[in-house]
Design a protein around this nucleic acid. Structure first.
Lengths: 180, 180
DNA sequence: ACAAAGGTAGACCGAATTGTCTACCAATGA
DNA sequence: TCATTGGTAGACAATTCGGTCTACCTTTGT
C-alpha cells in the first residue's frame, strides 16, 4: 500500500516547511502521522531520501500552481502582473494550495543544507530552473534580459517578504518591470 | 579576559556561516576554539545568546564593508554600480572581509529559525533595515520607489547567486536599474 | 604572604537524534 | 489448510544535543 508513503511525504512536507528540516526529527513525523519507524525506513532509505521526496512534491505543487495562476495571458505585461499578484496573494496566505507562507521552501532548504554539491542543494537549483523555464514558456518575447529581470525580482520579492517582512515587495516589482 | 569571548564569537560565526547554525553543535565550536564548555556558558547564557552575538558581529562587518565599498559617490548611478559590483565580488570570493560566499547569513538564519517573532528572526529583519538605511544615506535623491527597487534587486541577486548559482545576477541588476 | 574572587577544565546529565532489529500480523497462492 | 511473503509495530542502540556541576587554578587586593 503506497498510501502510507504518501501520508509520510505530506506530513513531512508540512512540518519541514513550517519549522525547518533540521528542526524536525523523524520521530515527530512518525508521531504526527501515526506511522511506525520501520515503515518509514521501508519506504525511504534515510531522512535525506524523505527530504528529497518532499522537495519533489513541493516542486510539483508549485509548478502546477504557477501554471494555474498564469492562465493564458495575452501580453507579457499580463504575465508579469499575474505572477507578482500571485506572489502577493501567497505572502498573505490567500493561496491555499501553497499553505501558510514561510518563504520559499527551496531557498530555506538551500540555507539549511549548505554543501553546494549535495543532492538536496542541486534539487533546489533545479527547481529554480524549472520555474524560470515555465515563465519563459508563457512570454511571447522571452528575451534573456527580460527573463533575468523577472526571475531576480521574483527571488527578491520572496526574500523581502520573508526576511524583511515586506509583503508589498511583489507589487513594487510590477512597477519596476513596467519601466523595463 | 574578554579574549576568549571574542574567540568564541569568531569561531562560531565561521562555523555557523559555513555549515549552518543548526548543523553546528556547541561541542564543535569548543573543539575548534580549544575553549571549555564552562567558559562558553560563563560568557553566554545559551547557544541562542551566542547566535545573537554572531549576528551582531556579522552585521557590523557587513555594514562596515558596505560603507567602505560605497566610498563617496558622485551620482546615484555610482552608488548602484559600486553596490552591485561589490556584490559580484562577494559572490566570487574576492571580498576577503566577508569570507567565502555562502549566501546572506541573515537570510540563511531566518530560514533556519522560522518563528517570525523570535529574537533571532527580528535581528535578521533589523539587519535588512540597517542596510536599507545605509544605502538611503548614500543616495542624493532617495525616493522610496528607487530605494525599494535597489533593495529588492539586492535580495534577488544574493538569492539567485546562492540558490540558482547565478553569479552574474548582480551585474544584471545594474542594467535593470539603469532603465528605472 | 595569603585570602578572596572569578575564570577554566572537562566529566557528567537527561533528552533527543537517526537508524536497526526482532517479533508479529494479514494477505496470498498452492 | 498451511506455508510464504511483505508490510507493520515499537523496543532498542549508538551518538550527539544543549546545558550543569564540582574541582582547580590563576589573578588580584591587602
Amino acid at each position: 500500500m503506497n498510501n502510507k508513503r504518501q501520508i509520510l511525504i505530506d506530513t513531512a512536507l508540512n512540518l519541514f516547511y513550517e519549522k525547518g528540516i533540521n528542526s524536525i526529527g523523524i520521530n515527530e513525523i512518525l508521531k504526527v502521522s501515526g506511522i511506525a519507524k520501520k515503515t518509514l525506513y521501508h519506504h525511504f532509505e534515510s531522512k535525506n531520501a524523505l527530504v528529497l521526496a518532499t522537495l519533489e512534491q513541493r516542486n510539483n505543487t508549485f509548478i502546477e500552481w504557477l501554471e494555474y495562476i498564469l492562465g493564458d495571458p495575452k501580453t507579457d505585461n499580463e504575465v508579469v502582473e499575474k505572477l507578482f499578484n500571485g506572489l502577493t496573494n501567497w505572502f498573505s496566505n490567500s493561496e491555499t494550495e501553497l499553505g501558510d507562507f514561510r518563504g520559499c521552501f527551496f531557498i530555506n532548504t538551500s540555507a539549511e543544507f549548505r554543501d553546494p554539491g549535495s543532492e538536496i542543494s542541486l534539487y533546489c537549483q533545479y527547481h529554480k530552473q524549472q520555474v524560470r523555464a515555465l515563465i519563459a514558456k508563457y512570454l511571447s518575447n522571452p528575451s534573456d534580459d527580460y527573463l533575468d529581470a523577472i526571475c531576480i525580482l521574483k527571488e527578491g520579492a520572496i526574500t523581502s517578504a520573508y526576511v524583511a517582512n515586506d509583503f508589498s515587495a511583489a507589487k513594487k516589482c510590477i512597477q519596476i518591470l513596467d519601466k523595463f
